[in-house]
Design a protein around this nucleic acid. Structure first.
Length: 429
RNA sequence: GUGGGUGUAGCCGAGAGGUCUAAGGCGUCAGGUUGUGGCCCUGAAGAUCGAGGGUUCAAAUCCCUCCACCCACCCCA
């Protein structure tokens, strides 16, 4: 028997409403903040990610789905969304349009990881990128938008953490200080941290081992070793966040796992965090466009994991609108009625009324059961009796009332009855 | 990549060497009205007991290997 590949999942009809719900909120929010949707290919040249995400990172080192295509090219299934958008920005000359360019995407993301709660080999992200604007107000706007997204979804008790990791000007000096500090402790570090010390110094800060945590607490903080420009930027960011009324905490140990970030980094997490808790993460990446061969262009963005949002929507018991059910089931008895029923079904659908009908003969009882199970509000019953009279019996399953309606009038009658009665479920804000 | 747990019909789940030609519930289908649903009753279909190998007179039950899922580390959304 075939199974979905490890770490991937089918999104079944009963779960689709969660995706639709989030999708709709994202669409509204994107429009509100002036973002336009962009879709990039599912795979790209491997080099795009190696170059931007960084050779030393876990994503590039051991998580990419890279394959050789038939002409010998090295291709990689998108392991993150920012680099492809930047590639598209350059490729389509967006630098010559009014800046900033504001784009959002909804895309599957592939990383070869060991699956566990909230972590998959294929997951989906909504991401937002604003390219061509250096002002910290845009960072704040970005964070505000992320925060508004979760608020509009009805998620409660989230926390916002920010940090500044400096830029190419000030980070080398800071990393030097950090190394120096950790070298002094080398003997006491865990095995992983000894490797990080040389390979990925920043990541020393978020080692989860209890033995290493005290070291991080006493370590020099990036936010206090910024150059004047970065320091100014970080100050502006906080000022803007305050003005927006956002509560945040500065987490000096917040470091992101992709090399292209600079200055602002941030994450949003649920308060009752389990293992894989981060709902959204992002930051500024002023060097990325240049790294890809474009003109030096500042940018900022963030991404959210849809599966994790769904997890939290369920955990917090948030009421999600149902997917619309068919309106009417056309039941029939006998061959003659069958023809009329099928004609009626076709006519209703031509009138944009969602309609169900059986093709194999079933008892009326069975057809009513099916109608009920499918969530139809109405059933049209057509038997020999109705056929000879040129009508059908329209039954309302909610009220159990029924009346004879001519086939010609059915669509109009249903439209009248259903207009304005669309079921709406509000989200508990 | 490392560690722990789990694996019985579409779903939940009993079962701990012979009484298992595998309980029960949900769901599905059919019937209880010659043309009427949601409740109730009856019946039916549906399982090579994750896969492969081994121990034994006998294995869903014990052993080994593999696979998958869950959880944690790691990493991240």
């Amino acid at each position: 028997m075939f199974q979905a590949p490890r770490g991937t999942q089918d999104i079944l009809p009963e779960d689709q409403r969660f995706i639709h719900f989030i999708q709709e909120k994202v669409k509204v929010l994107a429009h509100l903040y002036g973002y336009y949707r962009i879709d990039t290919p599912t795979f790209e040249e491997a080099g795009l990610f190696v170059r931007t995400v960084g050779e030393g990172t876990d994503i590039v080192e051991k998580e990419m789905y890279t394959f050789t295509d038939l002409s010998g090219g090295q291709m990689t299934l998108r392991p993150e969304g920012t680099a492809p958008v930047c590639r598209a920005y350059i490729e389509h000359g967006m630098a010559s349009l009014a800046q900033p360019i504001k784009l959002y995407y909804h895309a599957p993301i592939f990383r070869y990881e060991r699956p566990q709660a909230g972590r998959f080999r294929q997951h989906h992200q909504f991401g937002f990128e604003a390219i061509g604007e250096a002002d910290a107000s845009l960072d704040a706007e970005m964070i505000d938008m992320a925060w508004r997204l979760f608020a509009s979804l009805g998620l409660q008790s989230l926390t916002l953490q920010i940090n500044s990791i400096g830029c190419s000007q000030c980070r080398p000096a800071y990393l030097g200080k950090l190394k120096e500090y950790y070298r002094g402790l080398n003997a006491e570090l865990c095995g992983d941290c000894k490797v990080r010390l040389e390979k990925n110094t920043l990541r020393l800060l978020d080692c989860k081992k209890t033995t290493c945590q005290p070291f991080a607490d006493g370590s020099p903080h990036s936010a206090t070793h910024l150059c004047s420009e970065c320091d100014e930027h970080f100050g502006q960011l906080r000022k803007n966040l305050n003005a927006l009324g956002l509560t945040y905490s500065i987490n000096p140990r917040l470091v992101r796992g992709l090399d292209y970030y600079n200055k602002t980094v941030f994450e949003i997490q649920p308060a009752d965090e389990g293992g894989q808790s981060t709902l959204a993460g992002g930051g500024r990446y002023d060097g990325l466009i240049a790294e890809l061969g474009g003109h030096s262009t500042p940018a900022v963005g963030f991404a959210t994991g849809i599966e994790r949002i769904v997890l939290n929507l369920k955990k917090q018991n948030i009421c999600i609108p149902e997917i619309a059910k068919p309106v009417i089931y056309v039941a029939w008895l006998g061959e003659v009625a069958r023809e009329v029923a099928i004609k009626t079904t076709v006519a209703l659908r031509r009138n944009s009324i969602s309609t169900l009908c059986t093709y194999t003969p079933r008892s009326l009882k069975s057809q009513l059961r099916q109608a009920d199970g499918a969530g139809c509000r109405y059933v049209a019953i057509i038997g020999e009796d109705e056929v000879t009279r040129g009508v059908l019996t329209l039954r309302d399953l909610d009220t159990a009332q029924q009346e004879a309606v001519t086939i010609e009038r059915l669509a109009e009658e249903l439209t009248n009855r259903t207009s304005g009665s669309e079921k709406r479920f509000d989200v508990n804000a």
